[in-house]
């Protein structure tokens, strides 16, 4: 009887440890930019040949706390905060609310950073390695609570307009995302 309980506890501990490992892993040596597919995001829904379902795009860093905090560091290092002001917005739109002009999915934010958007958002194509863009994407999504709370970074030393990402209630976008194709007639 005791043995079974002990075995259960060990299995539970192992499962928790495995989950914790995934969250806390620090991968330094990412694959070089050339080894990753360029953008993985298409601006059109039309494809040659029969219509197939796209492979779902997953941000590899959304479940990794170190990557999200790296995203935060890069967000400031690359001066995203110069316009988006630690998420509160200023010259650029706020990132901690539920209003998304170009979509809140990881791939939408990825292409916003890489391609740029009309009226001010510059393109960072070729200037930021893809893995760092994905880290920034994860951080941007944490600002409005779209990431699990145990992954999102804690409060930093800056003035913040809202609660820190760890305490932010998920702000699901109100409107369904309109395809990017609509923006480019």
């Amino acid at each position: 009887m005791m043995g079974r309980k002990l075995r259960g506890a060990v299995a539970l501990a192992a499962a928790l440890a495995a989950l914790g490992c995934q969250r806390e892993t620090r991968r330094f040596r990412e694959s070089p930019p050339a080894a990753t597919s360029e953008t993985a995001v298409s601006m059109s829904e039309l494809v040659p040949g029969p219509k197939t379902r796209d492979l779902p795009i997953r941000n590899p860093y959304e479940r990794n706390a170190y990557a999200v905090s790296e995203g935060e560091r890069l967000f400031n290092a690359y001066n995203c905060s110069g316009c988006h002001s630690h998420g509160g917005g200023g010259i650029g739109p706020a990132l901690m609310d539920d209003q998304w002009i170009y979509g809140s999915d990881p791939e939408n934010i990825f292409s916003t950073i890489v391609e740029g958007r009309p009226n001010g958002m510059p393109t960072f194509r070729g200037k930021i390695p893809n893995y760092q863009v994905w880290q920034i994407v994860a951080y941007v999504r944490s600002l409005s609570g779209l990431l699990p709370k145990d992954i999102a970074p804690a409060r930093d030393d800056h003035m913040v307009a809202g609660p820190e990402p760890q305490r932010t209630e998920p702000l699901r976008p109100k409107h369904a995302f309109t395809p990017a194709a609509a923006e480019h007639p």
Binding site: F28, R29, E30, P32, P33, P129, Q132
Partner: peptide, 15 residues
């Protein structure tokens, strides 16, 4: 490959 030399440094790999 800066990470092969100094893992964790803020220099990214470049291709």
């Amino acid at each position: 490959d800066a990470q092969g030399i100094k893992p964790g440094a803020h220099m990214p790999p470049n291709s």
